[in-house]
């Protein structure tokens, strides 16, 4: 199967770097599966789960708190300001995220910023719901 290079980078470290078959990313306009040879694209991400398929039936999941994905001819790079292994995520982490978003919203200086944070907050809450369903299942 055709593979390509995938890197998940956060400001503090590189979480994943290696060859993968496919990557599912939560773009702001819906989930997107990227396979080898995808057209070059830059997309914004919302909080959600990134699923990297390293082989048949072999996947790795990450939580990203928004960011950007860049696909070019040879590689896919996710720049996330918040990224964790899915095993390290629980309700407390999400609640903390929501809380920081809320405090920042309260202190937002202008309307643009307010709108952006409001969106982020909604996305986070949405994700929390999805996350809990996943856990239950």
């Amino acid at each position: 199967m055709a593979t390509f290079k995938f890197e998940l980078v956060s400001p503090e470290n590189i979480l994943f770097s290696g060859e993968v078959v496919s990557v599912i990313v939560p773009s702001v306009e819906g989930e997107m599966t990227i396979l080898a040879g995808h057209v070059p694209i830059v997309a914004a991400l919302k909080p959600g789960i990134v699923l990297a398929q390293t082989g048949p039936g072999n996947g790795k999941e990450f939580f990203v708190g928004g960011g950007i994905v860049e696909v070019n001819q040879t590689a896919l790079t996710i720049l996330a300001e918040q990224a964790r292994f899915i095993e390290d995520v629980d309700n407390d982490v999400l609640d903390a995220e929501i809380l920081t978003a809320e405090t920042r919203l309260a202190a937002a200086p202008n309307e643009d910023e307010q709108r952006r944070l409001q969106e982020l907050l909604i996305q986070l809450q949405e994700f929390k719901g999805v996350f809990q369903q996943r856990k239950a299942a």
Binding site: V28, E29, P40, I41, V42, A44, E81
Partner: peptide, 24 residues
Amino acid sequence: DSVYEYEPDEGEILDVLLPRNLTV
């Protein structure tokens, strides 16, 4: 060869990216 498609459009991504770049 790096003619990207943008989602959402360039301007909006740039608006998000520039403040973040400052932070970085």
